[in-house]
């Protein structure tokens, strides 16, 4: 088997086996679809609502990506401030940890009340709040653990802090940054859906899930879950692809 073929075939086979086992489990246990829908129940749900799935999926996608972009910008900025200044690190770290410790499920209703009706804004805000922490921490650690010799090589030539950042500190931090981004993309996605499920008359896959619940359309709810999983996989692998492009050098050649 060639490498690329293998990379596609193996996960596909795993997924098909997973679906078959799921179908078999529901059939053997004799569960009705309100307890546990089976894959064969989902096909009619997708057929009936495919247009909604596309519209809502797009909503969820762009809100997640926007929230994540904000998290990257703000997280990197906070990480840089903490990475370069010891004082700022000592000052900000406990605040950040405390903020991150608050379960976001409790923040969701507060934000929903604060900005009633501003669905897009609320959702992006939660996606951002839940996902910037790993980025801030990884950037700050990457910068503060830079061996002094790396700095000295450029500093002894009269290079400015900005030059040192662009030429050495930033690229050296990229592997850690992408490690954090893989965590953040999943978190942002969770944040988006939390908000979408809670917002009344909201949009996005989370809202579709909620409408399935109110209408007791159980196959629809499961269909949304699968759609979410697919979207999550796509987002994750986009980050993996970006990592290959920008930090591929950090990957050790096997053998």
């Amino acid at each position: 088997m060639t490498g690329t073929l293998r990379k596609i075939l193996v996960p596909t086979a795993a997924m098909i086996i997973f679906l078959i086992l799921w179908e078999a489990l529901v059939w053997v246990m004799g569960w009705p679809n309100y307890k546990m829908a089976s894959p064969s129940d989902l096909i009619p749900a997708y057929e009936r609502y495919w247009e909604l799935f596309l519209i809502m999926g797009w909503q969820t996608l762009w809100r997640t990506v926007l929230g994540l972009l904000l998290a990257i910008i703000v997280g990197t900025a906070i990480g840089m401030i903490m990475g370069f200044s010891r004082t700022m690190r000592d000052a900000l770290y406990p605040l950040l940890v405390g903020f991150n410790a608050i379960p976001k499920a409790t923040v969701v209703p507060i934000v929903a009340l604060m900005f009633v009706g501003a669905h897009d804004f609320n959702t992006v805000l939660i996606a951002f709040m839940i996902s910037f922490f790993p980025i801030a921490v990884s950037v700050s650690i990457g910068l503060s653990t830079l061996e002094p010799e790396y700095r000295d090589i450029l500093r002894s030539l009269g290079a400015s802090q900005t030059t040192i950042f662009w030429k050495i500190a930033l690229p050296k931090t990229l592997p850690e940054f992408f490690g954090a981004l893989k965590v953040s993309v999943t978190l942002a996605f969770i944040g988006t859906n939390l908000m979408e499920i809670v917002s009344p008359h909201g949009r996005g896959l989370g809202a579709l899930f909620d409408s399935g619940k109110t209408n007791s359309d159980y196959p629809l709810m499961f269909a949304v879950l699968i759609a979410l999983a697919l979207l999550g996989i796509v987002l994750y692998y986009v980050v993996v692809a970006l990592e290959k492009v920008f930090a591929g050098w950090a990957e050790r050649q096997p053998g």
Binding site: E149, Y150, D152, I153, L157, W249, A250
Partner: peptide, 17 residues
């Protein structure tokens, strides 16, 4: 610092990228 100086250390600190 002045650009007429060159430095090398025990750790070669080459940039992997």
């Amino acid at each position: 610092p002045r650009s007429t100086v060159g430095m090398a250390f025990q750790n070669p600190v080459l940039l992997e990228w």
